[in-house]
């Protein structure tokens, strides 16, 4: 499963905000911290706002804050907002080689989707605080 740039930006921004729900950093602050496009991130943040995951705080010192439930919200919930709907396992009418390759790619995608579905933001925050495994 290859994630689009907007999806990756959304995951980064949501994790950044969920790590400190009291903070309300601006789009520019988040973008600069992670070295990503502020223009692109601004659009992503609006989409996250419409989904009820973040809230825009107006005025001086305003920015965005996380308003979702980190114990319920999974990585897949966020990915689903930005990735186009994945086609089901419809029979591939192409040549045999393409069909066989598609079966393997489908298998990889199913593992990836299950992994994203099983990881909540709360789990990700623990992972962010834990030392990396060797």
């Amino acid at each position: 499963m290859k994630l689009q740039k907007a999806t990756t930006f959304a995951l980064i921004a949501v994790l950044e905000l969920a790590a400190d729900p009291q903070a309300q950093p601006s789009v520019l602050e988040i973008a600069e911290k992670h070295g990503i496009s502020a223009h692109h991130l601004a659009k992503v943040m609006r989409d996250l706002g419409r989904a009820g995951i973040v809230d825009a705080v107006r005025g001086v010192g305003g920015g965005y804050r996380f308003i979702g439930n980190p114990k319920r919200l999974t990585l897949m919930d966020i990915i689903d907002l930005f990735e186009p709907a994945r086609p089901g396992r419809a029979a591939n009418p192409g040549p045999e080689a393409a069909q066989a390759l598609q079966r393997v790619l489908d298998e990889i995608d199913e593992h990836a989707a299950a992994t994203f579905r099983s990881i909540t933001l709360s789990t990700m925050l623990k992972l962010m605080r834990a030392p990396a495994r060797a």
Binding site: E110, T115, R117, S118
Partner: peptide, 18 residues
């Protein structure tokens, strides 16, 4: 099972990885 989201999420929350 891959589709057992509840228990998968639980084990993940305990720090288990693939």
């Amino acid at each position: 099972a891959r589709d057992n989201n509840v228990i998968l999420s639980f084990f993940r929350s305990q720090g288990m990885m693939a």
